[in-house]
């Protein structure tokens, strides 16, 4: 614990990476996110916790504008990454998503080879000038995804043939391959067994060195293990946001306390 707190003081001096102000999200008439204001720091793991339907995944999906793909969804407010408003009409959401990688709840490798899965992003964005460069990007991404040693001999085997934990690390490597600044993870371990979960959590801790990581999780233990900052959502509002250790040991809001002690949720 002591070591973690030291690390947190380290990152506390880092710049703000994502800054959201008065964000509202509507699904048709349903007001799903109410007045969320939060500042997420660079090179930090930030956990979003809260009961099902509290809006944490919805808010996560605002950060890479994935909500744009839903017809009835409307986002109001101001979200800035590195000071740039991502809902500005100048911003191309497709380009934005290359810079804000996302990892999903269920591992979703494409029905292609492991190599083609990782090369997918670099290919559509033209990141490699030739085959050798592409090979290099694929290897680097797979190494960052902590899966290189397991798949280096079968890069052309289908990605769907890997185990669940390997698939999820492949998806993380795939997201890293487009060289994002931010990694969003929507309950990345909820479909994995404890051993695969431990491997992915270890990887998340590694990723903190290079990226700002935002992770939605149902498991409070996971939030406590991997994150430095925690945000507690309830009924579409951001109830409390702060140092993870503070949220779990000394919550200010009674709703946060009820949730982490298991009285609500």
């Amino acid at each position: 614990m002591r070591e973690e707190i030291n690390v947190e003081t380290d990152v506390a001096v880092n710049n703000v990476k994502i800054s959201a102000k008065d964000v509202q999200v509507f699904y048709g008439d349903n007001h799903a996110i109410k007045d969320v204001t939060v500042e997420i720091e660079d090179k930090t793991v930030t956990a979003f916790i809260g009961p099902s339907g509290c809006g944490k995944s919805t808010f996560l999906r605002c950060i890479n504008r994935m909500n744009d793909t839903i017809d009835v969804c409307r986002v109001v407010g101001d979200i800035r990454i590195d000071g740039e408003n991502i809902y500005d009409p100048k911003i191309d959401p497709v380009q934005l998503r290359a810079k804000v990688g996302m990892v999903f709840q269920k591992p979703n490798p494409f029905p292609k080879s492991i190599y083609d899965n990782v090369a997918y992003g670099p290919r559509i964005h033209g990141l490699a000038r030739n085959k050798a460069e592409l090979d290099e990007i694929v290897e680097r991404s797979l190494r960052s995804g902590a899966i290189w040693d397991e798949v280096k001999d079968r890069l052309h085997a289908p990605g769907t043939g890997l185990s669940g934990g390997q698939q999820q690390r492949l998806c993380i490597a795939r997201a890293i391959a487009t060289e994002p600044n931010v990694l969003l993870m929507d309950e990345p371990c909820s479909a994995l067994d404890p051993i695969a979960t431990a491997q992915v959590e270890e990887l998340i801790d590694e990723l903190r060195r290079s990226y700002s990581v935002v992770i939605v999780t149902h498991s409070m233990q996971q939030a406590a293990r991997v994150s430095q900052k925690t945000a507690f959502f309830h009924l579409g509002s951001l109830v409390e946001y702060g140092e993870t250790s503070a949220i779990f040991t000394n919550p200010i809001d009674p709703r946060t306390e009820s949730y982490i002690t298991g009285r609500i949720g």
């Binding site: 793909t69 934005l96 998503r97 290359a98 999903f104 979703n108 494409f110 559509i124």
Partner: peptide, 27 residues
């Protein structure tokens, strides 16, 4: 074709027609 594959592709910054051509139709 599972929605997860579409989201995965959009999440990597692919456009709709790229997603259809490279992920959905092959699947």
């Amino acid at each position: 074709v599972p929605q997860a594959l579409r989201e995965g592709s959009y999440g990597l910054g692919a456009t709709q027609s790229e997603t259809i051509r490279l992920v959905i139709l092959p699947a």
